[in-house]
């Protein structure tokens, strides 16, 4: 207790001063907290605004339909956004089924034993492994040992591994929030475990799982480091083979084996060039990338908000 709260005349504790002091301290912290909050918000705002000012004037139809070029004012991101779309398709096809399956196993099937414990610790740890390490894994395994080359398939697999923990955790949380009665009702109707999962639990958990999938995919869209280590090319002036064709069997998976570039790689490449014109192109790519990731995250937040409202 400091001396200022002791009445100098009577030598007694001045309760009023003590309370005033504590309240003042409380208010001071509330103000500091609010200021920190404002600074953080301002930073996010400045980042978005910086990209808007630098990049938006550069975006045009040609920017989306041109290949990269040596001349900054003609450079476009056609191969990059097509590459991003295809890599994301490959990632989604791998990560969603595997991630949801693993989440279902851990939440509904897994017995309580050491193996389950290991898998759980492992998933938690994988979520914290830096993305560039996944790039090194893919470089050592997919590129050097399996000799799959620098293709869309390898990029898709790498990013799928990277976002697997996000989807697993989201699936588990979605299933955990479903009341036990749903399971009992399904079993009471004669369903076995898988029927209960497939017909009742997965549909009931769909919004939560979807949230995890969206957050994971938005993470994958912006990932740059692992794609660099597996060796994405930065100058691609052609498109991978189209996934649809007009002859039987109408779909074509040759694109999986095609070289590619993606938007974050294209952006990074332009940032590293000395000409200011390329920096503008990088900012324009950043605007598109930012809008996509912010929209996806916003959608995920909205779905989560709806879940909470409906469960109330």
């Amino acid at each position: 207790m400091s001396t200022e709260t002791v009445n100098p005349v009577t030598g007694k504790i001045d309760e009023q001063a003590l309370v005033t002091k504590a309240n003042r301290q409380d208010l001071r912290f509330a103000i500091i907290g609010f200021v920190v909050l404002v600074v953080v918000m301002a930073t996010l705002f400045a980042l978005v605004l910086d990209f808007m000012i630098d990049g938006v004037p550069r975006i045009s139809g040609e920017f989306l339909t041109n290949y990269p070029s040596r001349r900054p004012e003609q450079a476009g991101i056609l191969s990059a956004w097509v590459g991003t779309t295809l890599v994301m398709s490959a990632t989604a096809m791998l990560a969603i089924p595997i991630g949801v399956a693993a989440g279902v196993y851990l939440e509904e099937y897994a017995p309580k034993n050491w193996l389950t414990d290991i898998i759980e610790i492992n998933v938690t740890n994988l979520a914290g492994v830096p993305s560039i390490i996944y790039g090194l894994l893919a470089l050592g395994l997919f590129v050097q040992i399996f000799r799959l080359g620098q293709t869309i398939l390898v990029a898709g697999m790498t990013l799928a591994l990277l976002i697997l923990p996000i989807i697993i955790v989201a699936t588990r949380e979605a299933l955990r929030s479903i009341p036990l009665e749903t399971r009992e009702a399904a079993f009471g109707l004669g369903a076995d475990k898988w029927q209960a999962v497939w017909m009742y639990l997965l549909p009931a958990g769909r919004p939560g799982i979807l949230t995890g999938v969206i957050v994971g995919m938005s993470r994958a869209i912006g990932e740059t480091a692992p794609i660099i280590t597996i060796g994405a090319l930065t100058f691609i002036a052609f498109l991978p083979p189209a996934p649809l064709q007009d002859t039987f069997p109408f779909v074509n998976f040759d694109w999986l084996n095609s070289p590619y570039t993606v938007m974050p790689i294209q952006m990074f490449n332009w940032i590293s060039r000395p000409q200011a014109g390329f920096h503008v192109a990088a900012a324009a790519t950043g605007v598109i990338l930012l809008s996509m990731t912010l929209l996806m995250n916003g959608l995920a937040i909205y779905i989560r908000y709806r879940i909470r409202r409906s469960s109330r």
Partner: peptide, 24 residues
């Protein structure tokens, strides 16, 4: 209101943060 905004901040691609650091 604040928690979703923090989530948006977490969703910004790192390459965009790199641009922001170097040029802004």
């Amino acid at each position: 209101i604040i928690k979703p905004i923090l989530e948006l901040l977490a969703g910004v691609p790192t390459v965009a943060f790199g641009y922001f650091a170097l040029f802004f």
